[in-house]
Write a protein that binds this DNA or RNA. Structure first.
Lengths: 193, 193
DNA sequence: ATTTACATGTAACATGTTACATGATTAC
DNA sequence: GTAATCATGTAACATGTTACATGTAAAT
């Protein structure tokens, strides 16, 4: 159900069309909670049915239309309730560490390929999250700036600090994944010698 | 599909009944890849249909029966192929960091409750993984010992080292989650003052 | 006798993935 | 005129979650 609240979090900044929302999503919250377009559009419809958001059809050109969504009071309340409710933690399900525990069952080459890919994947995530961190610190994220504009002074620091906090956590996580896989490569080399 | 290979990894050590397998699972790989019994038993049936394992019905008492599974050649091959194939990484979907990024939208009390729960959850995982690490290092994990017994000398060190490597990674991960949430608590205190 | 452990699932639901599908509008 | 980007999905499938369901055997 987190997708719903990730979308609400973006719409709370201001009304957006599904398309614009989806773009903002991929550039911001999408780095923490991925979802494809094919999940976003239907979810918006469901949220509208649930009364959390309202969409207004807008003409675009001669025949085209688009739907501009905004958060309702019920939506604001639902978001607040979600923020205050305990998060439900999923049980661990970690394919990379599962495989790492059985690397003796394959060749050193396959083990290296696996670890190198791990490094590559997490470097990608790291780059995304470091980029976001920079945007937060330099106030160069347009969504964040729009949000700050409508916020009382007191809330601005809080808003920035919590975003920084979240992304710092992600950056650290990516770094230890990379460091871990690099140690793994060294281990493969040692055992292969 | 990782569940299938997690189960194969255990069965490769030696034949087991579904029930014993499930118990071993929860005490070992289950710490890395959780699955409830209601997923394990049907998956074993599917694996049998796919020819990866074979089960033999065994009498137990007067009326009871149980099914003892062992890995087939096809199963060994499938495991080897999975180990050599690229892992498919799931896109990020991290509810805790998602919420952390919007903590300004709730009360300091709710923020603290969230972070304290985060610490509690990860302390639980940490304890599991540290326990496993100890068992690996002291060779006090029965599954590992049984595995080592049937392995040539050369493979023993590798087997132990890779398990240690995997669990060390998990332990580190848990530690940074805890440290991160503790920093979050300090941040909430600072902003609340 | 009663509890604990053995033994094995089904059913309904929620969530997420992948591939496919379609058309309009704007900028060059 | 053609490419990019705007705009919005459906359908089939895989995976995982939760709650429920049932009975046997061994230990105290």
């Amino acid at each position: 159900m987190s997708l719903r609240y990730a979308l609400l979090a973006i719409l709370r900044v201001g009304p957006l069309s599904g398309y614009d929302l989806q773009k903002q999503f991929h550039q911001s919250v999408g780095h923490v909670w991925h979802a494809p377009d094919s999940q976003i559009y239907p979810e918006l419809r469901k949220m509208e049915q649930a009364g959390l958001i309202e969409g207004e059809e807008q003409a675009r050109g001669e025949r085209g239309t688009r739907r501009i969504y905004h958060v309702t009071d019920a939506g604001e309340q639902a978001f607040a309730e979600w923020m205050a409710a305990p998060l439900d933690y999923q049980r661990v399900r970690d394919p990379a560490h599962l495989r790492a525990a059985y690397l003796e069952a394959t060749t050193p080459e396959a083990a290296r390929a696996f670890l190198e890919r791990h490094i590559e994947v997490w470097r990608g995530e790291l780059a995304q999250w470091e980029g976001e961190l920079t945007h937060i610190e330099h106030l160069s994220n347009p969504m964040l700036v729009r949000r700050l504009e409508v916020l009382p002074d007191d809330d601005r620091e809080r808003t920035i600090e919590f975003k920084r906090f979240a992304y710092e956590g992600l950056v650290e996580r990516a770094r230890i994944e990379i460091a871990w896989a690099e140690r793994g490569l060294a281990l493969v080399d040692r055992l292969d010698a």
